[in-house]
Simulated scan of single mutants.
Amino acid sequence: MISKDNAEHYVWGDKCDGWYLVKNQDMLVIHEKMPAGTQEKRHYHAVSRQFFFVLEGVLTMELEGEKHAIGAQQGIEIPPEAKHQARNDSNNPVEFIVISHPTTRGDRFDIPDITS
């Protein structure tokens, strides 16, 4: 049995949490929690296909320049090579599951921020 309580934990970004529920080369399943106002770097995966499923809160997913507000019990698929960024634009934490097939390890390419 695996749960957030006994899974391998890590911290990413600005105080965001992740728990590896499945950590295999052919599939990665992570439970993530993002505090209010946090975001990940915009990036893409050359091979991995992902599915984000929101458990609590609202996740804003920027996908190829279009923003999607994903509420609890909703999800969004991210195809390979699609540029995307998960954000929490709300005032409350958001928790979600990310399923990646195959794993994103070694398959993440950050997009430089070109704000001026």
Rank of each mutant, 00 (worst) to 15 (best):
N88C: 02
S48F: 04
Q50I: 05
A46M: 10
V94W: 00
N24V: 08
A86S: 12
D89M: 10
K83M: 11
D26P: 07
M27A: 14
V29L: 14
H31W: 13
F51V: 10
R49K: 12
D14Q: 15
S48M: 05
K33V: 14
D14A: 13
G37W: 10
Y44K: 08
M27T: 14
E32R: 10
T38W: 04
T38A: 03
Y44V: 03
D26N: 13
V58T: 14
E95Y: 04
D26M: 10
Q85V: 08
V94H: 00
H31M: 09
G37Q: 05
P102N: 01
V94K: 00
K83Q: 14
K41Y: 14
H31Q: 11
F51T: 12
L28P: 07
T104E: 08
N91K: 11
C16D: 04
N88V: 01
E56Q: 10
P79S: 07
V22I: 15
S90I: 02
M27L: 15
E40T: 13
Y20W: 13
H45Y: 04
A82L: 03
R105D: 11
P79G: 07
H45L: 06
T60S: 07
P79Y: 06
E40W: 11
V29P: 02
V58H: 03
E64W: 05
T38Y: 06
I78P: 00
E64C: 07
W19Y: 15
P80T: 01
G65R: 02
L63R: 03
N88E: 01
N88D: 03
G75Q: 00
F52D: 01
V47Y: 11
A69Q: 14
H45K: 03
S100C: 12
A46C: 09
Q74T: 08
K23D: 13
